[in-house]
């Protein structure tokens, strides 16, 4: 059994923060340089974890982390070189 789900699961939790559907946004991994839509990430912690962790499908490095507390959302994108939004 896989212990992760695909990045399309980010659509719900990220919609609170972004006006666009981020799963179609192209991200580039700071670890290995692989680029692709966030929907391709491997997402851990989706099932009642402390937060969601999106990892690169190429090198498993962390690309994004999102923690939702009762009052705040914490978004860490250190693992992404860039996010490319199609305008």
């Amino acid at each position: 059994m896989l212990d992760y789900v695909d990045g399309s699961s980010l659509a719900g939790p990220m919609r609170e923060l972004f006006a666009v559907d981020v799963t179609a946004v192209e991200g580039r991994c700071a670890g290995c340089g692989l680029a692709g839509p966030l929907a391709n990430l491997r997402v851990y912690g989706h099932d009642h974890g402390p937060g969601v962790v999106g990892r690169c499908p190429g090198c498993d490095e962390v690309i994004l982390r999102l923690v939702r507390t009762p009052t705040d959302a914490w978004l860490d994108l250190r693992g992404a070189v860039s996010l490319r939004f199609s305008m």
């Binding site: 212990d3 992760y4 851990y44 912690g45 099932d47 009642h48 974890g49 402390p50 937060g51 962790v53 990892r55 498993d60 962390v62």
Partner: peptide, 9 residues
Amino acid sequence: FPVLSAGPT
């Protein structure tokens, strides 16, 4: 004993 992970085991 729930299993929560932030990455592959």
